[in-house]
Nucleic acid binder design. Structure first.
Length: 209
DNA sequence: TGCCAGGCCCTCTTTAGGGCCTT
């Protein structure tokens, strides 16, 4: 059974990634693509991907950064249609993203537009990496995928490709924590405490779990 | 005309500044 709240299990999540027109929905930026991977009992069992027409043109930087052109978005379904479908896909699952504060802002904004919401909580693979992969050169998604030798199709900055890589990273991170704390049930509460604990206290926290 | 993100986290810190991440 999937459980909401602090007892939500970290092996049952939806890992998501947005491509957007810019950095902030508060400045009028909108989502242009959503990609997500559903993980159940540690297995990647389903995916969701769709472009969406934001009702405005994307600039040249975004076209080049994502490879998503205005021509591709012209015939895409509206954000409202896509996000309604995505809200159904999420269901009661808790959520994971790389730099989750960014994706949460856009998820909240886009679901507000279509008067939908979600019950799950967020965890962040970036914050977690800063605690458990101290030797990584940096904590960009692409760097971590290469550093940990995780599966990749060589495509970056497209929503489903990035969500897939984040899903592999998330499962790797859970396995790493489980190695250090074999008998601990990895709930969102445990993960999110670990993601925010002072670095000097990480080992102490892991040994006392 | 001029504005233009924000949360996290480190340090030359807390009456602050700047780099890291995401598009």
């Amino acid at each position: 059974m999937l459980v909401n709240g602090d007892m939500a299990l970290a092996h049952n999540v939806v890992v998501l990634d947005f491509e957007t027109t810019g950095l902030s929905p508060d400045n009028g930026d909108r989502a242009i693509e959503i990609g997500a991977v559903k993980i159940v009992n540690g297995e990647m069992v389903d995916t969701f991907q769709s472009l969406m027409n934001p009702g405005k043109k994307v600039n040249t930087f975004i076209e080049q950064y994502t490879g998503i052109s205005n021509a591709m978005l012209r015939d895409a379904p509206s954000c409202q249609i896509v996000m309604n479908q995505f809200a159904d896909f999420i269901g009661d699952f808790s959520l994971v993203a790389h730099n989750a504060s960014f994706d949460k802002k856009f998820l909240d904004a886009e679901l507000d537009y279509c008067q939908r919401n979600y019950k799950g909580q967020f965890a962040c693979s970036l914050l977690l990496s800063r605690r458990i992969s101290l030797d990584a050169p940096n904590h960009k998604l692409g760097t971590l995928v290469a550093y940990h030798q995780l599966p990749t199709e060589g495509l970056f900055h497209r929503a489903l490709a990035d969500a897939n890589m984040t899903a592999h990273l998330w499962l790797y991170q859970l396995a790493l924590i489980q190695q250090k704390a074999p008998h601990v049930e990895l709930t969102f509460d445990v993960i999110n405490r670990l993601s925010r604990i002072p670095k000097a206290k990480i080992n102490q926290y892991l040994t006392t779990l």
